[in-house]
Design a protein around this nucleic acid. Sequence first.
DNA 1: ACACACACCTAC
DNA 2: GCAGGTAGGTGTGTGT
Length: 810
Amino acid sequence: MLKVSFPTVQQLMEVKSDLMPAIERNQAKQAAAEAYETLQRSLNQGRDQHTRVQDYLDQIVEMREFDVPYHVRFAIDMDVRCGQWFTVSSDEGQMKMERRADILQRAELRICAFDIETTKLPLKFPDASYDQVMMISYMIDAQGYLIINREVVGEDIEDLEYTPKPEFPGPFKVFNVANERAVLRKWFDHMRELKPGVYVTYNGDFFDWPFIETRAKVHGMTMYDEIGFRHDAKAGECRSKCCCHLDAFAWVKRDSYLPQGSQGLKAVTKAKLGYDPLEVNPEDMVQFAIEQPQMMASYSVSDAVATYYLYMTYVHPFIFSLATIIPMPPDEVLRKGSGTLCEMLLMVQAFKANIVCPNKHLSSVEKIYNGHLLESETYIGGHVECLESGVFRSDIPTRFRLDPRGYEYLLDNLDRDLQYAITVEGKMELSSVLNYEEVKSEIKAKLEALRDTPNREECPLIYHLDVAAMYPNIILTNRLQPPSIVTDDVCAACDFNRPEKTCLRKLEWVWRGETFMATRSEYVHLKNQIESEQFPSLTDGGPPRFFRDLDSEQQSSKLKDRLKKYCQKVYKRVLDKPTTEHRIAGICMRENPFYVDTVKSFRDRRYEYKGLNKVWKGKLAAAKASGSQIKTQEAARSPLIGKPLELDTDGIWCALPGSFPENFTFKTSNEKKKSLTISYPCVMLNVDVARNNTNDQYQTLIDPVRHIYKTSSECSIEFEVDGPYKAMILPASKEEGGVIKKRYAVFNHDGTLAELKGFEVKRRGELKLIKVFQSEVFENFLGGTTLEECYDAVAAVANRWLDMLEDFTR
DNA sequence: ACACACACCTAC
DNA sequence: GCAGGTAGGTGTGTGT
């Protein structure tokens, strides 16, 4: 490997564009050579072929880390992060930054949350080309300001206060100015005077900033020249070089875990700040500004108050904490996807471990399966099942038809399970337990009673059992990481490859692919056909374009469209029924554990955080059960002992008979830990998981010089338990006996809602919109005196709505 | 009436 | 230039 560094990004790009074609050429050559070699081997004429290095350019087959943005590269290499303190010094122009790890206090930035109100036409969204800014409200360091456009607002507004909660004070100073131009002038001047370090908006990336920018232009001002912000329509964001713009809506979308139906500022305020904000129907705003200006003024500042305190309470601590570990500025930490953030963390760890990052994996195009073009291929994911519908209440007895064999099994394995709970989960000596027999006989008696009277009516115990951080723990238990997925030829070339080797772990998975109905030859025919066709020019009256002139994305979409139409015509359907295939993956247990170790350190941080969070909330549940995933076969036993209600991927909601053994406390002679509380239902699952999923082939390099590995057994896939609950409600489908997955409601014993999953109330509030539409159509329909007038009026409403929905969709 | 494709948005 | 994954419910449009 050759490392090349550049003083500027431009130089990097120049070299990259020189090298890229050569690399593509060399890769193609290499692929051809490999194919040729395989052929040679199969003809049993294999011979080493050494190429003489004539031109180094011919030898470059890959380029790495050329697409790392400059500021990310800098932050990683120099170990600089936003949100940390540094002592900065300069020695003859050479800058030095020294990290001040001793200062943990967050910097006190000047934060400005702002929000604009604009005019708008009935049932239209505000359009900056003709609508105006009515008011700008903003809060800086808990002091509010409101600029009023007196051309729109009916009267002068006096200073006011909007304090929705004592902890969220909102005193506002009001500036009444003559017109929109003066509003913008005042705001720009005030911002230049106060120089905020962070601007905060709610959806300002898409609305407030571009609106202000456009209106400023109308009045001959340039927002960029005034305060350094420019809206980038392509990226859909508004940013500046000199300070941050943190759009709280981006935090709500990615980090709040609120459903989309509750991501408006009003719903977020209710959910996160715990008060009911002022609400005004957007259709009434302009009228109110003219007729009830004081009320409109209060409303206007209420959004700025909500945005400011949402930011101060949630967004700021979250983003600036994340920024101390992610090598990006806060604006990007806020807006990037979780995949990019994870990649950044991996790149930091890779740099520290002197590992060169791999390039993004590209799946090959035009895969053929069984003589048909593959439309998509993937793996079978989590399993979901709903077994019951109806109401389950802990205070209303329900009929249990238990299977004595299930209880017999639990009794047979009671010692094993309890000992597992003590030694593995509790990490304690069995001999240190003082009341083992006592606990055991108590559980035994309960299990025997259930076994002996399996048909019984009892109040149910509604429990939820789920695996903590399941995917990371599957990864860690099995040492899964991209470079560890090996094929026979990889093993064949490995020094550790012996007949009795244990370093290759085999794991089953299920492949699923969907193919087009058309055969490969039909596909090839269609492709040849389309390649000779012409397509309309991009410009009016320009020359037609050939297929080869289209970019690769357009080509493949045009070809796919053609193929779909062909399949629909000839086969009456586009895709064949999906096919599945059981496959075995080989996992190398000796690959450098960089990814696995990194996942581990992040999982442990998550556990640490979750633990501290629990302590802080005073909710520390004593029973932190260890456990394991149930194999399908084993899961089948669980109906035998109670009623499974709903399963999804890593968790089970179930009803156990009221007399089922629950929590027990072992007393111990251990001075440091005098007792150990276990949840029997949890332990029972964890033993199964451990028995079926422990990796006995886990290998750790202990002597890098002599290549000696230590083999150990690992299983960190463990169930946690919560409950019992007061009630669970599972909806039924329209078909008799039909059940619905992923939708249920659960109540706590104090009557509060514990979980509400999947129901329409969590989705977008379109119903509301439809009702407004219906009432408007209704009104207009009645308004006419002839049928024609009625139809015309309704058509006018419909057209307005179509326009509006188009804006809305955009 | 029925299936299929697709959009949208949720659970995990 | 950027984009985590699969499973599943509901509603609409379309073709047979």
